[in-house]
Design a protein around this nucleic acid. Structure first.
Lengths: 197, 197
DNA sequence: TTCTAATGTAATTCA
DNA sequence: TGAATTACATTAGT
């Protein structure tokens, strides 16, 4: 049942493709030379929306008007908390609710989206040595564990199945990277040996 | 050649999108319990070599020739260690000590640089004042430069694109940190003012 | 000591 | 799912 609800959740969050984009820079960048970037900074405020520094965490809602005190306040609090408390997850949830309620009233979408950009990121999971050990062991024999193995691991290691899946994804990426590099080394060595002889 | 290796690391394998999918695992997995998977761990030691850290510049070792035993030997040791233990911090320390003792006997100062090299860490890049200036200028208008801007910057500043990317990453972290701190101060001040009144 | 380049990796987004 | 990219925590050089 837990698995089902988790998967429901996954499917649901896949659909909100309208979440904050981090990619605009890519498109925007292609139309800029460095000179233009440097040259434009003073001139164009209108077109600067593309070149505007994208720093969601600095995002002050002071743009919204002077009566928006909470806008300034809430992000401040949400950043202050982690200084005192390592258990960020609870705060993240709380924050989410607060902000969402708040902005639903005042401001439309844009601010909410910006907020969700930093609000929505899952706190980094720190795996224990033992967890890593087991995961690595499983990985050596099966880099693509199915849902059943993942669930079993999750239960045994006291982790979300989601974390397991992501871990394997990243682990496969790492493996592939190292393969590519060792292949490159081989080619390069062969190459330089041929040059020498 | 360096450029090739960089791109090998990053964007090379776009072409293997068409690889055969590895779906069999799902079926196969259901026939495994974790215990049975773990029971197999001894057989596949070959796969473990894949766990090598991602340090492309280690390739330079082989350029030095066969008479450079240390070059070959020590990195081999330092790479072997992590395969047996996930607790990387301890090993890093151990490794450091070993190397340090070893080299302290033979040489003096230049050793330090050699050391970091043997440890597998890229020598710290010292940006020139001009490079920093340009990077900062770009940063003020765009803290998330896309690949094209990064490449352009790399060319103009005579730096690796990788260095540029890392620089922006660290710069964003710095900005975020300072922002967090100032907000923290604000909250703290507001808080104590409210207490006083 | 402080700042920051470099590292490793969990998380996210897109195709 | 892989690939690219990000944030984040940490290590270590100057």
């Amino acid at each position: 049942m837990a698995a089902i609800s988790r998967h429901l959740h996954k499917a649901a969050s896949r659909s909100d493709k309208n979440r904050p984009r981090l990619r605009e820079n890519k498109k925007a960048a292609s139309s800029f030379s460095i000179e233009s970037i440097l040259g434009l900074e003073k001139k164009k405020d209108g077109a600067a929306s593309a070149a505007k520094p994208h720093r969601p965490w600095v995002e002050k809602c002071s743009d919204l008007g002077t009566d928006c005190n909470l806008c300034v306040c809430i992000p401040a609090i949400s950043y202050a908390i982690p200084l005192f408390n390592a258990g960020k997850f609870l705060e993240t949830e709380e924050r989410g609710l607060k902000c969402e309620n708040y902005f639903a009233v005042n401001e439309g979408l844009s601010c909410k989206r910006e907020l969700s950009w930093y609000r929505g990121r899952r706190p980094r999971t720190a795996f224990t040595r033992n967890q890593i050990e087991v995961l690595e062991e499983v990985f050596t024999v099966n880099s693509y564990p199915g849902i059943d193995v993942r669930e079993e691991l999750a239960q045994k290691l006291d982790l979300d199945e989601d974390r397991i899946q992501i871990w394997f994804q990243n682990r496969r990426a790492k493996l592939k990277r190292s393969h590519r590099e060792s292949q490159f080394l081989m080619v390069k060595n062969t190459f330089s040996q041929n040059i020498i002889k």
